[in-house]
Design a binder for these strands. Structure first.
Lengths: 131, 131
DNA sequence: CAGAATCCGTTACGATACTG
DNA sequence: CAGTATCGTAACGGATTCTG
């Protein structure tokens, strides 16, 4: 359990308070879900279709977490074959820019990253050969 | 928006090419490490002190991952009691703005998030009482 | 339709001890 | 100092089945 009552010795001890927030909001699926919900409200099933590889379990977990943190909102629509809509909240909207920043960065730098990986892997292989 | 009309079944669904990159770079410790290395180069031990709760094992893993993706660089300095320095690369610097965007957002919105959580938890509790 | 419940393998992570 | 090696546990995530 990461510290709570820390505030230990040296001055620059920055065990960030928002670490735990980021864990909740930058997890495996949140960015993708958020990215979609920023465009338009969506239903559970729609999200499943858009983000193919997510299982209902994980999707539920992600949505609940985002809801709990006030980033998205769960709205029950009809009452027949129950319909539920998820939509971004005002607070959630403030998160849009940062998220897009990250996603854009990833898209743009992808090629360079690939290159770096290849270099690294080659070097590692070679080093192994030395043994 | 990356889409998906293609494969139907449950195999290697690549619904997002940078998903995997983000997993490597937005993991539990990377943001903190990055945030520090953006300020100045640091050594292994220094990072351990700054980020109190990280174990050597996890720190090594984080550093290796970032290095492999070309975000940081590992520099062996002396040769006596070996000294190693980690520093951000040019590619890594392009990541700085987005990362800070996220961190800033987290810091700013923290209070509202807390509020949202309390509301959510209270509601959940109450709903439970109904049973 | 929207999810809850189960089972279960993989991985992540912490704690600790050890080495060049 | 800068890690590696090992071990054990807890959490995550996937697949599947069930239900109001």
């Amino acid at each position: 359990m990461p510290n709570t009552t820390a505030s230990a010795s040296h001055r620059f001890t920055v065990d960030f308070p928002h670490r735990e927030l980021l864990d909740q909001v930058l997890d495996k699926w949140s960015l993708l879900v958020l990215n979609e919900l920023c465009e338009r409200p969506l239903r559970f099933g729609e999200l499943r279709q858009i983000i193919e590889s997510v299982t209902p379990k994980s999707l539920t977990a992600t949505l609940r977490r985002l809801e709990r943190n006030g980033i998205i909102e769960r709205v029950v629509l009809g009452t027949r074959p129950v319909a539920v809509q998820y939509r971004i909240t005002p607070l959630g909207k403030t998160f849009r820019a940062p998220v897009e920043g990250i996603l854009q960065w990833a898209a743009e730098q992808m090629p360079l990253i690939e290159q770096a990986r290849e270099r690294f892997d080659e070097d590692a292989e070679e080093a192994e050969r030395q043994l």
